[in-house]
């Protein structure tokens, strides 16, 4: 990823519909993979348990569906990514080839984590999310365009207005989503605020 252009103003790819509300991060990446000390290899385990039936056999989860192989725009519904703060969830999605998420709504820590990876989580209306899912399910080769600059999602002849927190949208469009750099540049101001906080100097027994 290192040499890839960080600008994310326009992302194009085939869609992958995942129809469900309240998909939590435990489902996106089961907790057992949190035991890895690096994020490498997480992509293969995205939705691992959700992709199996009670007997451990692959079910009809869209991540198992050969029609969506190579798809990069994940189309979801309400409150996607709720639950834990684990960055493993967007890391797993990103490493599974997902380059943008479109859905009715996203949990806050999750969408923030997505941005730190340069992965947009764009909101559309509930009806638009459902319609996009239908379109893609009917035609898996359809290219979905997530246009953060133009604030719309396009699929075939259809257009849908997208929203996302303005700070996130701008950072993705400008390619400045890697926050560490801009935070680092203010060290003098950081030290000034630190010294103004009373508790920084308090004595404790420890």
């Amino acid at each position: 990823m290192a040499n890839k252009d960080p600008k994310r103003g326009l992302i194009k790819g085939r869609g992958l519909p995942l129809r469900e509300n309240d998909v939590d991060t435990d489902r996106i990446i089961p907790a057992r993979y949190l035991k890895w000390v690096t994020f490498d290899g997480l992509g293969a385990h995205a939705f691992e348990d959700a992709r199996k039936d009670a007997k451990g056999q692959p079910n009809d989860h869209p991540f198992n569906d050969p029609r969506y192989k190579g798809a990069s725009v994940l189309i979801v519904n309400r409150n996607f990514g709720c639950g834990s703060s684990r960055e493993h969830a967007p890391q797993a999605l990103s490493r599974a080839g997902i380059e943008a998420l479109v859905g009715e709504s996203f949990a806050e820590i999750f969408s923030g984590n997505c941005v730190t990876l340069g992965l947009p989580a764009a909101r559309v209306s509930a009806a638009d999310a459902a319609e996009l899912q239908d379109l893609v399910a009917a035609n898996p080769s359809l290219v979905v365009e997530v246009d953060l600059e133009g604030r719309e999602v396009r699929a075939g002849a259809k257009k849908y207005a997208l929203t996302m927190p303005e700070a996130q949208r701008q950072a993705l469009v400008a390619g400045t989503w890697d926050s560490t750099g801009s935070l680092l540049s203010n060290e003098a101001k950081i030290r000034k605020i630190a010294s103004s906080l009373p508790y920084m100097a308090w004595k404790t027994a420890g």
């Binding site: 684990r86 960055e87 923030g112 730190t116 926050s179 560490t180 935070l183 680092l184 203010n186």
Partner: peptide, 19 residues
């Protein structure tokens, strides 16, 4: 709660970018 990249931000700068 914060994600892992933000843990790195706090370690490096004792600050976070927040809405």
């Amino acid at each position: 709660g914060i994600g892992t990249t933000q843990v790195c931000d706090v370690l490096a700068t004792q600050t976070l970018a927040m809405d």
